[in-house]
């Protein structure tokens, strides 16, 4: 825990100095939320034309998008340290890869929470009336961001350079955006049915459950109504983060002296 906090402090300092990167991570989604809201067919700033405005339908997607942005910030930050040789230095210290990555991850979780709060605030400015409070939104965003960090760590570990990490993170972003229902309706592909629940390949994407949970909550559901989605999200987030750490350990992990 001490090492995790030490590396969280380091990551916070670095994030504070990367003003452009931090602003892009935090503000991209809120700004696009506002832009889309202003350009939406019925005008989000005005009164709703029907029971649900197009803009309102897209708010859950924008929240998920802000969580997906964490794939970029986490992968590029780590790839920069791999590329500069700093990670080679860290592996000569008696610290575990998991605690180093968890320390950096804490800062990205904070970014995810702030980003989601800004998206929600932007949507509210344009008339969106969320049916759940901010704590529930933050809880789900942070849970989803754990998987984004895992993906980011895996991408950085496999690509080694910021340039390649950016390209691969972009591919991952499109995969998550297109196949988890964030932008378009999710394609229906049935793999198995367990206890009456139909599961498809896209259920393996944490963002699928995050989006479904947000959509349900924003349309009047409560946390109990999405408990299975939350469970799936939590499990997948843990699996994704563990996979990211494993890939990192395999490629850049601790030395043989440990």
């Amino acid at each position: 825990m001490r090492t995790t906090l030490l590396f969280a402090e380091k990551a916070l300092r670095q994030q504070g100095r990367d003003v452009v990167g931090t602003l892009l991570t935090l503000l991209t989604t809120p700004l696009f939320t506002i832009l889309y809201g202003l350009l939406a067919p019925e005008g989000a700033a005005g009164p709703p034309a029907g029971p649900v405005r197009a803009f309102d339908v897209y708010v859950p997607g924008m929240l998920v998008f802000s969580v997906i942005m964490i794939v970029f910030s986490s992968s590029l930050g780590l790839a920069r340290e791999i590329e500069s040789g700093a990670m080679r230095r860290v592996r000569s210290w008696p610290v575990s890869a998991a605690s180093v990555l968890a320390g950096g991850g804490l800062v990205h979780l904070a970014l995810a929470a702030i980003g989601a709060a800004l998206v929600l605030a932007s949507a509210r400015v344009l008339g969106f009336q969320p049916s759940v409070g901010l704590p529930a939104v933050l809880f789900l965003s942070v849970l989803g961001a754990v998987s984004s960090i895992g993906v980011g760590v895996g991408v950085a570990a496999l690509t080694d350079t910021q340039g390649r990490a950016f390209l691969v993170a972009s591919v991952v972003m499109f995969l998550l955006l297109l196949f988890s229902g964030v932008v378009f309706p999710r394609p229906v592909v049935r793999l198995v049915t367990i206890g009456g629940v139909v599961l498809g390949p896209f259920d393996l994407l944490p963002t699928t459950h995050l989006h479904a949970a947000f959509a349900r909550l924003m349309s009047g559901g409560d946390l109990a109504s999405v408990k299975l989605r939350i469970l799936a999200l939590a499990l997948l987030s843990m699996v994704y983060f563990a996979a990211g750490v494993l890939v990192f350990r395999r490629r850049h992990g601790v030395g043989v002296g440990a």
Partner: peptide
């Protein structure tokens, strides 16, 4: 101790520093 790294300091050939931290940090 189990971890040899606590007793061996290593300076690799190439640079291995955090570019955005100060030398002191």
């Amino acid at each position: 101790a189990r971890d040899r790294r606590a007793f061996v300091g290593w300076c690799p050939q190439g640079s291995s520093v955090f570019g955005d931290l100060t030398a002191r940090e």
